[in-house]
Each structure stands twice: as structure tokens, then as C-alpha cells.
Write a protein that binds this DNA or RNA. Sequence first.
DNA 1: ATTTGCTCAGCTC
DNA 2: GAGCTGAGCAAAT
Length: 123
Amino acid sequence: MIAMIVMESSNNGIKFRKAKYNDIKEATYMLLNLVPPGKVTTYKELAILLSTSPRVIGRALKENNKPIIIPCHRVVGSNGHLKGYSMGGLEVKKRLLLIEGVEVKNYTVPKKYILKLTDILMS
DNA sequence: ATTTGCTCAGCTC
DNA sequence: GAGCTGAGCAAAT
């Protein structure tokens, strides 16, 4: 688990507050930057790490304000199925993954390409 | 492979 | 508040 609580510093000192939606969004993007090309992760995994629901992760990715910087295409469903991709649809998502060296058969990514974020974070 | 029911946060009214 | 919506999940069929 990474960030349920956000720490903020101000002139007064340090404050803690509950993570808001925007915090989840930022955290999602940060985690996504840990996924190397040629690998993918899942909505579920991100949701667990950020202690939210998979659907919120999807929403966060869809609303990303920093296109290109955020490799949204490296996120698939827990079963390996491609889910959505607002910037051009599944076809584009598939193509991007193929370019990066990820096999995509019938809109499904084989398990061996699914990276467990928890493994990285614990190592 | 497809259907069915559950979940949870954001959005709208 | 109440009700709707989903870039989801998992179990049952």
C-alpha cells in the first residue's frame, strides 16, 4: 500500500490529510511510470496499491491531462484483456503494445507480460 | 465465451 | 441525499 494519506508542508508545518481523487490520479501516473516498455500492469493491481477500486483507476487514466507522458496503454484488465483506451480506441492501444514488444492476441495480453507492481516495490 | 451480480467514487439533479 | 454511470471483477452458466 502506498498512499492513503497525503503529507503536505506549509509555513505552519506539516499537515496530513486523506487522499483525494486528484491524489489518486497523480499516484496512478507515478506508478505507471514504473512500468517499463514491454510490460503491462492491471487496473486491479493499481487499485489495490492505492486502496481504491479498479473503476476509479480507469477513470483516472481516462481523464489524464498529460497525454504522452502517461503510458495508459500499459494497463489491462486483471485477466489480460484490453479494456479501454480513450485516445484512439483499442486498436491504437494494441498497436502501441505491439510496438513495445508485448504480444497481443485477440485483444488479450498473455500473463507473462503482466508485471506485478508489488514485486518491484518490495525489492 | 457469455451472462449476472457486485462494487465504489464521481457526477448530476 | 438519491440515482445513474463506468477504461472492472469474479462467479456461475
